[in-house]
Design a protein around this nucleic acid. Structure first.
Lengths: 171, 171
DNA sequence: TATTGTTATACTCTATAACTATA
DNA sequence: TATAGTTATAGAGTATAACAATA
């Protein structure tokens, strides 16, 4: 097991393999709601921490503020969130989730539940809990912030250009 | 737990969170060997299945053949693999791993072991085995091919441009 | 006419550094 | 002079469709 291919049946590789698959499957599911994982994460942040300036939001997500501009443009266009001028400082925007954003977040929650059930379909309820608790301990040990995707720095901004999504094969 | 943010403490989200983190951490580790995850996966494939044509390799990895061109150029440049003309069909190349490629694969194996230990440092041996077996069952249920990264379609070809890697913060 | 590997094109995403308007 | 948000630029990656050589 030393000169052999690394990690075929060992946890770290399985984690990236299954984790990548889960991320792809989730992105595909919520594409039906016209949102990306980035949108979903931002909606969640805004629900929990509104109001937030763009820089505060960027800091919380671990991404550069300039990347947020396009994403927030999309979200405003889609009616999910709004930029409101701050009374105190005319340079900053207070970001707030809209009623439609809250509704979309609820729908995302439902889709997530389906996704969660599908991904862990092979496990019993008890095993699901075991898995959750092991993963929570790893996440804590690795310094991951609950609810924040570490790939935020490079999560696609827009949904993949449609053609590929219709290709039947994946998931 | 219904209108609340999706998946904070539930397995599917934890899987993508921890899985993404693990993938990033591994990529960073093997960057010290001047290889990317894509290179590592190809080295492993070539060790197991040499010789292989480019189209056969692309099919096994689930990626488009044209993407392989640049990656194999790099690997030949780095002396990890070679394109040998086929005796039977002058259109095809037989890909073979070199002695240096085998040596690099051994080193990757060692780095992987460190990585695996680091990622699962929070767990006991028994828990590690439990996690492995749960993940293997999920992977099998989801139709994932053992040892093949589902993100192969969009794994970065070259190591990230250096500057970012030296930025201290991640991992 | 089909297939292998390659190249060319157009498109997306990203990071960085200007830039503006405020403070 | 510093900060919030924006825009511009340049670079990297990808997918797709041509393409040349060979079958």
């Amino acid at each position: 097991m030393n000169s052999s291919p690394p990690g075929k049946g060992s946890p770290a590789f399985l984690l990236t393999q299954v984790g990548t698959h889960a991320a792809q499957a989730f992105a595909k599911r919520i594409a039906a709601l016209s949102v990306t994982p980035a949108h979903a994460g931002i909606l969640r942040m805004l629900k929990m921490h509104s109001p937030l300036s763009q820089r505060e939001l960027a800091a919380k997500l671990g991404m550069h503020a300039s990347r947020l501009v396009a994403i927030l443009d999309e979200m405003e266009e889609g009616g999910l969130a709004v930029r409101e001028p701050s009374a105190k400082d005319r340079r900053v925007y207070q970001l707030r989730i809209t009623e439609k954003g809250l509704e979309t977040l609820r729908e995302i929650g439902l889709v997530y539940q389906e996704h969660n059930a599908a991904i862990t379909a092979a496990l019993s309820d008890e095993e699901r809990e075991t898995l959750t608790s092991l993963l929570e301990r790893i996440a804590a040990d690795q310094g991951l912030v609950p609810g924040v995707h570490p790939g935020y720095q490079s999560l696609p901004v827009k949904a993949r250009s449609g053609k590929a999504a219709g290709k039947a094969s994946r998931d």
